[in-house]
Amino acid sequence: MKFTPLAIKKQQFKRSFRGYDIDEVRIYLEMLASEYENLLQENKELKEKVAILETEVSAYKQIEKNLHLAVVQAQETATKTIENAKKQSELLLKEAELKSKEIIEKAKLELVKISNEVSMLKLERDRILTELKNFLSSELEKLNLSIFHQKEESSEKIEEKIKLDDIIKNLEQ
């Protein structure tokens, strides 16, 4: 049987000899019905509040879920950004190393080329000096022969001989 405030108020009891006071039972039932009605109203209000709060809790849970997803995505993005930055820095470093090796190799090749050119120039200088010495020696011999054949020498020829001797000495040094 379902109790309602109206059912409590209209409840009829059998009359019996030596039973309860009817007015007292009626007053009690009316108070009980009134209290029961208040409890039902309060229960209804609490159910409405519970429904509202459940809706709010659901909304907050959704917000929490969205925030959690946003934090996870932000962490993933940060991790990917850091990884990309590391990869890019490694790539730049390798590129710089390759360029420096290339520059060093070019410098070494240039050094070899310059060394070869210096060696060639030294050989050319030595060849020219040798030819010049030979030429001057030959001229000196001619001069000596000519002096030997001539008894009288002019002062100009002696000076020329001295100059040629000095040149040969300087070239030998």
Rank of each mutant, 00 (worst) to 15 (best):
S89Y: 10
L109G: 06
E97V: 00
I114K: 13
L136N: 01
K87I: 07
L91Q: 13
E131Q: 15
S137E: 10
I114M: 13
K101P: 04
L145D: 04
K133D: 01
L111F: 05
L92D: 12
Q88E: 14
N134V: 04
E105G: 01
L109F: 03
K113N: 14
K133E: 01
K86N: 12
F148A: 13
I114H: 08
I147S: 07
E139Y: 01
N116G: 03
L121E: 05
K106I: 03
Q88P: 06
I128R: 00
F135G: 05
V118P: 00
I104K: 15
V118K: 08
D126N: 10
L129N: 07
K86Y: 07
E124I: 01
I128N: 04
K87P: 03
K106Y: 06
K87F: 06
N134E: 07
L140M: 12
E117T: 11
I147V: 11
S146F: 10
N134P: 01
V112W: 03
L111A: 14
I103R: 13
S100A: 10
A107P: 03
E105S: 09
I103F: 09
E141V: 05
K133T: 00
E102G: 09
S138W: 04
E102H: 07
Q150S: 12
Q88N: 14
L136H: 02
L132D: 03
T130P: 05
H149C: 10
K87W: 05
L93P: 03
E90L: 11
L140S: 02
V118D: 07
V112P: 03
L111T: 08
E102R: 09
K101E: 11
S146I: 12
K87T: 13
K94P: 06
L93W: 08
I103P: 00
K108T: 08
L123G: 10
K94H: 12
L145G: 06
L136A: 00
L143I: 06
R125P: 02
S138I: 04
E124F: 07
E105Y: 09
K86D: 10
E139R: 03
S119Y: 10
E95H: 14
L98Q: 13
E131R: 05
L111I: 14
N116D: 09
N116S: 06
K101R: 15
D126S: 06
K94Y: 09
K101L: 12
Q88W: 07
K86G: 04
E90S: 15
K142Y: 09
A96L: 06
L121H: 00
D126F: 05
K106F: 02
E97H: 02
A107R: 13
L129C: 06
K113W: 04
M120A: 15
E105C: 05
T130Q: 11
S119N: 14
K133I: 03
A107N: 15
K87M: 09
